[in-house]
Amino acid sequence: MTNEIQEDQGELREVLDKTLHRFKNNLQTQLSLMNIQTATKREYFDDRKVIVDRIFALTHVYDLFYRSNKDDTFSHDSKVSIQSFMLQFIQYLKSSTTKIDFELIDISEVLIDVDDLLLLSYILVEVNDFRESLDDTLSLEIDQKDNKVNFKFAFSSIQNHEKFHELFKSQYKIFDLMVMQLKGKFDYRKKFVRLSFPIL
């Protein structure tokens, strides 16, 4: 009995250590994004909203992470449902605009790492800021195929998305860095831009 209690305490300590580590890394990411913004002269349409949205993304991810692991005493799994997150987070973004349409296709079973989900949400925040600067409607579609998540987006005012990169070239560095960190890549098509990244 004593051994079991000691083992449980040890595991609890390990989970707390990991949580603290994760918490600090997430704060570092938020700080890094702000500093890179200054270093690369990234001009957001709405700076304040971008920072608030990132903080809410972080909150939504951890709410979900907590709820998914609630019944597991000492969960070591850091994966959560992309569908649940996106439903919640896009709903949050839509609370301040009606100009976002989205579709989630066949991702109800897909679990991705918390850190990757955070990066994806920060990418979505960037895309939403592009949308605001264009005063446009954003269409999103997320699906999965061959162990990859495909995140497609399109703006109604852009006729040819093959030129999307050129349109925002000077504002692209943060976007690019996050995509590299996700080990993802862009595919620019006429009707949309697709970001695909592996489910690890």
Binding site: N35, I36, A39, M178, Q181
Partner: peptide
């Protein structure tokens, strides 16, 4: 290995 952090540090050190 975190590209955001390494880029930030590089910017700071370059400056």
């Amino acid at each position: 290995d975190d590209k955001l952090v390494s880029f930030e540090i590089k910017s700071i050190l370059d400056n």
